[in-house]
Design a protein around this nucleic acid. Structure first.
Lengths: 208, 208
DNA sequence: GTCACTATTTATAATAT
DNA sequence: TATATTATAAATAGTGA
């Protein structure tokens, strides 16, 4: 559409390219919005301008699990995983990598104190079984319930989910509204266009 | 566009709605693709059909930052992390959750074999340094002592918070994670020791 | 860079097959 | 229900202020 048919390849002229991007971006956002309204569906759009700027759209109002959020989660999980691995290395050190007696002594110390903890609890249990006198402290212990830090919500794609899972601290990841300014501006323009050119309400993009 | 102008509201007729969805979805995907080509940008699109089916598009052939892929990575990492946590529980069991002597014996066994590995490597080091004998047989028996109960399914979410269910694999002992203070302090000391005493890069903790 | 204009292409709603 | 057709609405390429 337009005065001439554009060949389907990268527009070399940077000015035209940027101009085309701006127009078509608006067009796609508008269509995405229309689709979400007409068909009552969730639509999410993410794109980068030729200059690298990110724009995203989500018909759900709630921002989508966009790349930044997911990358963020990945980072955090990676860090956590590395921590666990490091910890495990103390218990399961690669023998080949131990290069000094001092080092192995450290590992040994580590395991020794771990084993002592076990023996302590074993002794306690034996004491409870054979000499029923210190029962009261055990009762109290049984109720201790800790949050499981390993539980991370299922990540399967599902329309009910919409990225509301949390990390182990329970703090949700930047889920506030965050449509980019350029997008909102585009919306405004678009709404003006619509208002001027048609009879139907301009409610379309006002998810917020 | 079309024979008549469509009012911008949800299409009530389910058949028309589905039909419109199919057409417009294709249209948007086409436009997204065109935009990515003409303007040399990354575009990602995610939408749900009225029946709940997911469709997504990413202009980057390598769909790395596509949500699905990130979700996928998250899934895998989560599984790995859960594995590590499960393993760690054998070394750092929550003493309060150990309810039988038999159980504590299991933990003790793990720690004992771990400590034996250390002692072996220590002996090897000492042997190399002082008494060169009985060194060769230790090579390469680094780990692999616990059965890798990695068969945690995608959908499994930790729901069994209460102590000792008899899962035959023994993996879901389901004790809450518990970084004991003494453990953390020991780590800190260890780091200090390592940093002070050796040239090799500090092996753990606070890598990030 | 932005906006408006408009000739032209493209998308698609209704319809037919 | 899926696919093809076609009349019409909508998007937009080029242009100029």
């Amino acid at each position: 559409m337009g005065r001439k048919k554009l060949p389907m390849r990268r527009i070399e002229n940077p000015t035209s390219r940027q101009a085309t991007y701006a127009k078509r971006k608006d067009g796609i956002f508008k269509k995405a919005n229309e689709l979400s309204i007409l068909c009552d569906t969730d639509v999410a759009l993410i794109m980068f301008s030729p200059t690298g700027r990110l724009t995203s759209f989500s018909s759900t109002g709630r921002p989508i699990n966009n790349e930044e959020d997911l990358e963020d989660k990945l980072d955090k999980l990676n860090r956590k995983q590395r921590e666990s691995q490091d910890k495990l290395r103390y218990y399961e050190p690669n023998a080949d990598k131990i290069t000094s007696v001092l080092e192995s002594g450290v590992y040994q110390h580590f395991l020794t104190s771990a084993i002592q903890r076990i023996q302590l609890s074993k002794a306690k249990l034996l004491g409870n079984q054979l000499v029923p006198e210190t029962t009261e402290n055990v009762e109290g212990n049984t109720t201790v319930q800790m949050e499981d830090t390993t539980s991370v919500t299922d990540q399967s794609i599902d329309r009910n989910k919409n990225g509301m899972d949390e990390d182990e601290s329970g703090k949700s990841l930047s889920m506030g509204p965050h449509l980019s300014l350029s997008f909102i501006e585009a919306q405004r323009k678009l709404n003006n266009q619509l208002a001027a050119s048609s009879d139907h309400s301009t409610s379309s993009f006002n998810n917020y």
